[in-house]
């Protein structure tokens, strides 16, 4: 009689289960199940209180998003924040990488120092900079007379978002610097040397050789900052708390406030699903472009 698997096969499956099931069970319970329940919640109106009924309202939550001015403003601010941050983080990160890969003796020390902010959590960074804007910026304004530049940005509806960009850049520049360093070190020294012998100036060597060969590093860094920027929360919370007057309430914070602040669980969850779709689109575009480039290289 040949029922089921042979002993050897059964043993193999047994080991497979022992090795994989513990992690996959936890993962399913913590990530997959909530994700699916979350999609379900997005079609209901509910205040989060167990005793109160959940009312099915179809696509109403998603329709409501379209003319929720606070949400639309928040989405726009997030896009603005992300675009500005992607530019500043990458410009600073690339500049740092070029500096610390020069042949200077203290380059390693500088690299270590420039990377430091990334390790300190976003929440704590935000508090540190709160003080810098509050006190040091005002002090600098008084001392230099440039009080149209140096004042407390956090109290100003237009400047608070720039403050957020500023601090995010401070946090992330050292991080993308690491990616660019890897890219720069991958450029063969002979290529640069050959160009130098052919009489290419420093600037020409940078534009014609370094930049094209850094394309993979660019792609990685651009999309890393893009998705990190879009998801920013901790720095947002501790630096501005969304203020003044909601001028810096970015996407992630808007979702949090909608659900846990205003108690709109169903509506807030619909926002969270839209958030996921946007992040997924950004990330998949990244993967697509990276793969395409890898083939070309």
């Amino acid at each position: 009689m040949k029922v089921g698997m042979s002993v050897a096969n059964r043993k193999k499956v047994g080991w497979y289960l022992i090795f994989t099931v513990p992690l996959l069970l936890i993962f399913t319970l913590i990530v997959l199940v909530p994700f699916v329940i979350g999609i379900y919640y997005a079609f209901f109106q509910w205040d989060g209180i167990g005793a109160n009924p959940m009312v099915f309202n179809g696509l109403d939550n998603f329709v409501r998003l379209m003319d929720d001015t606070r949400f639309l403003r928040s989405a726009w601010l997030t896009v603005l924040f992300t675009v500005l941050s992607v530019i500043t983080v990458n410009a600073a990160g690339l500049a740092f990488a070029l500096l610390v890969t020069s042949k200077l003796k203290l380059a390693n020390l500088a690299r270590t120092m420039l990377f430091m902010p990334y390790l300190i959590g976003g929440l704590i960074l935000g508090y540190i900079w709160q003080f810098v804007f509050l006190d040091v910026f005002t002090l600098l304004g008084d001392a230099t007379g440039l009080d149209s530049i140096f004042f407390n940005w956090l109290n100003n509806e237009d400047f608070a978002l720039f403050a957020l960009v500023f601090v995010f850049t401070w946090q992330m520049a050292g991080y993308v610097m690491i990616v660019y360093i890897a890219g720069i070190q991958g450029i063969p020294g002979e290529v640069i040397e050959a160009a130098r012998i052919d009489g290419a100036s420093g600037w020409q060597r940078f534009l014609r050789i370094t930049v094209p060969l850094l394309m993979p590093a660019f792609t990685i860094s651009l999309f890393l900052t893009l998705s990190y920027g879009f998801k920013i929360y901790d720095v947002n919370l501790s630096l501005t708390g969304g203020g003044p007057a909601n001028a810096t309430e970015l996407f992630a914070m808007n979702i949090y406030n909608e659900i846990f602040g205003y108690g709109n669980y169903g509506y807030g969850q619909a926002k969270a699903i839209v958030f996921f779709v946007i992040i997924a689109a950004i990330t998949l575009t990244q993967v697509y472009i990276t793969k395409k480039r890898e083939v070309e290289m």
Binding site: F27, V31, L32, V33, P34, F35, I37, G38, Y41, G48, K231, Y233, A252, I255, Y256, I259, F260, Y265, G268, Q269, A272, I273, F275, F276, I279, A280, T283, L284
Partner: peptide, 12 residues
């Protein structure tokens, strides 16, 4: 699932 941001699953 690495695409899923934390905010999308925090409430459920």
């Amino acid at each position: 699932t690495m695409l899923i941001p934390f905010q999308t699953i925090m409430m459920p």
